[in-house]
Nucleic acid binder design. Structure first.
Lengths: 112, 112
DNA sequence: TGACTGTATGTCATATCCGACATAGGCTGG
DNA sequence: CCAGCCTATGTCGGATATGACATACAGTCA
């Protein structure tokens, strides 16, 4: 079944340490960059939602989406696109400046 | 037909002057931010392709896509997602740094 | 304990996006 | 002129993402 594969990749992605992408996985440069980017957006979305003191269900209403999809967004589920993540961040009022910062910033730096 | 609407919105988007989005169109903040973002990526993609001296057809081969889709990407056609634009930029080897710059930078600044 | 709240995960029908193809128009060098 | 590129636009069948729903699980409060 397809789910297995996707889940595996996602979970592996979550466990990454900075810069370790290519070493552990058989991903191409673009693919690993894409996944890292997505994970950053996912984390950024959760942080922003929490700053706004919203539950996933509340944010879902704002997005005209559902709680389950918000959960998937924040966990970096393979079924969600960068497109949706970015649109969601925009609905939460992120500025171009903050969005670009989110993209540029390494996971390590943001965790600190 | 649907094409009319999409085309109209896209063409209007193309004609924007900096900061004039909301004034001319009946778009929400998120929607206009999304479209502007997409147009920046579209322009960025074309610039990068040209810097690499590639035709749309050549780039399409690299992306395992088609010339027509590349053309649509670069013209900001509504049928292309931010997702595809970003993946394409990644294939062209854009760094997180440059990607974030692309997102942060205003159209006016980039034109200069 | 059990009601309640918030989050995660799986599934599905449908909406949207994608690659591919056809075709048109522009431009350049014969 | 026209042959050979390059880019733009429309269409379509198939692929993928989406919202919605069901359900599970953890934590909290009384």
């Amino acid at each position: 079944m397809k789910m297995r594969e996707e889940k595996k990749k996602r979970l592996e992605a979550k466990g990454w340490k900075v810069g370790s992408a290519k070493e552990f996985l058989n991903l191409s440069d673009e693919e690993s960059a894409y996944i890292e980017l997505k994970m950053r957006m996912a984390e950024g979305l959760r942080e922003r939602r929490q700053q706004h003191r919203l539950s996933q269900a509340e944010l879902a209403r704002m997005l005209k989406s559902s709680q389950s999809r918000v959960a998937k967004m924040e966990t970096g589920d393979p079924s969600v696109s960068l497109d949706l993540l970015i649109r969601s961040l925009l609905v939460l009022g992120i500025s171009s400046r903050d969005l670009s910062r989110l993209i540029a910033t390494s996971r390590a730096a943001r965790a600190a």
